[in-house]
Design a protein around this nucleic acid. Structure first.
Length: 529
RNA sequence: GCCCCCAUAGUUCAAUGGAUAGAACACGAGCCUUCUAAGCUUGGGAUAGAGGUUCGACUCCUCUUGGGGGCACCA
């Protein structure tokens, strides 16, 4: 619908320009939004206000000129309101027809084509294999998973990848920790467990073994428990084994993008917007994290991805410019690489801040959280928040609040629908809906509900553009609310068979949209509660 | 010192530069002889401070205050 209105506005302005009603100008980006108040219609645009400066005319006059020539076929009314809003109210008949549209498309309702023939990769979690996943990893994990789901819904071919940092300093430290010598840094129960299994006394070797066990026995099961499927678990070590790191370093040197200074090899990242140049190979010959990251970046693009999304914790934000610089140095565009920074999760206990640290062994693992509050509530809890918000997390509070988690409100709507549908089937063996009896959907609560339903594809589209995934739980909540109100006002099972059939069609459409929304969020849709 | 994020109701969070700033929890009052009361209706409560840009600012810019994170030849 949004799309249609934008199109109609463009056509109207175009027509008016041809008729010399409006002077010639480039049509700017047209924004159509949902007004907060119902009296302001179903959709609204501020285009007249945006054009006022350009046309040297009052917004309200421009709005009037536009609406006078507007194709009204989809709308009951189009209002012009001070200081120049144009508000659209959708025609009832159009809404009724959409119910059929949703039933026809079913699980494909909301599927878009904007990502057609485009490959995009989302790399997320990628926690070092040095311990269990933390709440922060959970936040990034759910976000990445849902983002991947949305992109898929929008038609992209999506890669979901976990990058395993299985070489380097942290592995050695892990080794020391397992051995339990002076250089041990990681603490916690799992280290003690590993110590029983690993008898190796050489730190690097012990670390390698431990990392493998942690990945297979701790991280992968946790990820599975989170309801996340990666298609690729990418090993950093493999980049070295395949000589990809070496090759990229040679390539950078040859193209004068890297130089030697003080016995180290430096990447000329400042040339591409970074604050300073960065070391690729240390004076002692060890390669830095950045070296393999550049090789990894190149590998991703060479696998055919048009766009790359990285989801990182806020503690990595200083790394953004480096990666963007690397992309540009390799001949790609900065905008092909999108780095989403998730703000850190702060752990509170009884109102006091506890510093979460793998090294100190003071953290709540993701598994503990999921066990305590359940996957659906955990997912909804994290997805509701904007990535930019710092979130405070108190397990006891979360536990207490999990019983009141809004996710149940949404699921309850779904269960209620299923229950009515069941009853209907028992009473009427033959169920058939036609466009004819949808004309009986006239109640305000019915029409409001349909208006919410048809927003679903728009929600997907908006979210693919700005990655603000908290829009989904919000939408789900409002949709459920809209259904609960319908439930209060309109009985589905009534004496009036025709009315019952049309309302059944409406709740079946609602069921579809709720299910599609929950699926994208990775949350279950229970038929009974 | 420099960089990133944040500051909204008692609390936890929303709000592509739009119209009377929304929810949830908590607190107060109502609604089940009718499809699931995990529901509905309803009351009180908030944009840290000072300037600026704009027809219009929680949103953008500058400064102040207060929090979190980052500034390595660590990862």
């Amino acid at each position: 619908m949004k799309e249609k209105i934008v199109q109609l506005i463009k056509e109207t302005i175009d027509l008016l320009q041809k008729q010399k009603e409006l002077s010639q100008f480039e049509i700017p980006e047209i924004s159509v939004e949902y007004p907060e108040k119902e009296i302001h219609g179903d959709y609204s645009t501020n285009i007249a206000m945006n054009l006022a400066g350009k046309l040297k005319n009052k917004p309200i006059e421009i709005a009037k000129i536009i609406t006078q020539s507007f194709n009204q076929s989809l709308f009951d009314k189009i209002d012009v309101i001070e200081p120049g809003f144009i508000n659209f109210s959708i025609k009832k008949q159009y809404l009724q027809e959409q119910v059929i549209e949703i039933l026809d498309k079913s699980e494909r309702f909301g599927t878009l084509t904007i990502g057609k023939d485009k490959k995009i990769q989302v790399e997320f979690i990628s926690a070092n294999p040095t311990g269990p996943l933390t709440l922060g990893n959970g936040r990034g994990g759910f976000c990445g998973d849902v983002l991947a789901n949305i992109l898929e819904k929008a038609g992209y071919e999506v890669g979901r990848e976990y990058y395993i940092n299985d070489v380097g300093e942290q592995i050695k430290k892990l080794g020391h920790s397992v051995i339990g010598d002076k250089e041990a840094v990681y603490k916690g129960e799992y280290i003690k467990e590993l110590r029983k299994k690993i008898k190796e006394k050489e730190p690097e070797e012990a670390g390698q073994l431990a990392a493998k066990i942690i990945l297979e026995e701790i991280i992968k099961p946790s990820v599975k428990k989170m309801g996340i499927n990666f298609n690729v678990w990418f090993s950093e070590k493999s980049l070295y084994e395949d000589k990809k790191v070496e090759k990229i370093l040679d390539w950078l040197k040859k193209n004068k993008l890297a130089y030697e200074k003080d016995g180290a090899l430096w990447f000329n990242s400042s040339k591409f917007g970074d604050d300073k140049d960065r070391v690729l190979v240390k004076a002692d010959g060890e390669k830095t994290y950045l070296a393999s990251d550049i090789a990894y970046l190149k590998d991703k693009f060479e696998r055919g991805f048009d766009n790359l999304i990285y989801i990182w914790g806020a503690d990595h934000h200083g790394y953004i410019k480096r990666i963007e610089a690397a992309a540009e140095a390799l001949g790609y565009q900065k905008k092909q690489v999108k780095i989403i920074i998730m703000q850190l999760v702060r752990l509170l206990k009884g109102g006091r801040i506890v510093r979460m640290s793998k090294r100190e062994g003071t953290f709540i693992t993701l598994e503990e959280l999921v066990d305590e509050v359940g996957l659906d509530a955990a997912r909804f809890f994290f997805l509701q928040r904007s990535p930019d918000s710092h979130l405070n997390f108190d397990l006891s509070l979360a536990k207490e609040q999990s019983e009141k988690n809004p996710v149940y409100y949404v699921q309850y709507a779904y269960a209620r629908i299923c229950s009515i549908v069941e009853k209907f089937k028992v009473q009427n063996s033959k169920v058939k809906t036609t466009a004819q009896n949808l004309k009986l959907l006239n109640h305000l609560s019915e029409l409001r509900l349909i208006k919410h339903l048809i927003k679903f594809p728009e929600i997907i589209e908006d979210t693919v553009k700005d990655y603000q995934i908290q829009r989904l739980p919000q939408y789900a909540y409002k949709l459920a609310g809209s259904f609960h109100q319908f439930y209060r006002d309109c009985r589905v099972l009534t004496e009036d068979k025709e009315l019952s059939k049309s309302r059944l069609a409406l709740i079946l459409a609602t069921k579809i949209v709720l299910k599609n929304t929950l699926d994208i969020m990775g949350i279950s849709a229970p038929e009974k509660m």
